[in-house]
Design a protein around this nucleic acid. Structure first.
Lengths: 114, 114
DNA sequence: TTCATATGCAACCTCCTGGTTGCACAATAG
DNA sequence: CTATTGTGCAACCAGGAGGTTGCATATGAA
């Protein structure tokens, strides 16, 4: 068994806190869905249609980037952002860890009741 | 198709922001793993072994409860907390939505390169 | 060159979050 | 009854998050 999963199972889950925190904002989720269409999008275009300032959007993108969910590549005068697949998969796996234990608990409970 | 999934796919994702926000804290993730063992645990016992105050733990539990991830039931003088399975599953499904689109994008990209 | 576009940086503001302390109160234990 | 245990509530505090504005700068277009 790997060291991470041996130690009470909580450590590798706790590692994902920054990712979840980055996901815990409606504006940022909106940005992610815009980016999930696949093309690289500039900050200006990501700001279009939002009530927020370009600077606000920039800050949100920074948060997403620090969490590793997104990456910005420079092209000419614009900064194009694209999704970064791996961390999200990891977060999903982390949720799997809890809900799997959860399921076991429920199954145990159910068999106890029946 | 449901109304939620029809509207640009982003709305039902954005609904999960509070859940992700609740998950975005190391202390709360630790609490969740403690609770994922299945038994109902009192605030006092959840506080044991932590460097934080009971009040701090209480506040975190409140956040988890407001996000619907946890539920407190009163027994005598103590407040026992237990997990609430459904919202977490929903959050996981929400992540699935992004990463599935993501995968499609990557697949498209790959087939384009090859 | 000259103008417009896309961004970056920094200062500033307000409000929420995470944490503490102190006190009051209900429920058990002896 | 009295002491102890488990909570709840409120006030308070420091720091960070989200947002704005103003200005500087690089690139592209004409």
């Amino acid at each position: 068994m790997s060291p991470a999963s041996r130690e009470s199972g909580g450590r590798d889950l706790r590692r994902n806190a920054p990712i979840f925190a980055a996901l815990g904002d409606a504006t940022r989720l909106k940005l992610l869905t815009k980016l999930s269409r696949g093309s690289r999008v500039s900050i200006a275009r990501l700001t279009e249609g939002s009530t927020l300032t370009r600077q606000a959007i920039t800050k949100h993108l920074r948060v997403l980037q620090d969490a590793g969910l997104v990456r910005g590549v420079r092209r000419g005068r614009e900064n194009l952002f694209e999704l970064e697949p791996e961390p999200l998969d990891e977060a999903r796996r982390a949720l799997d860890v809890i809900s799997r234990q959860w399921d076991q608990v429920l199954a145990r409970l159910k068999s106890f009741v029946e």
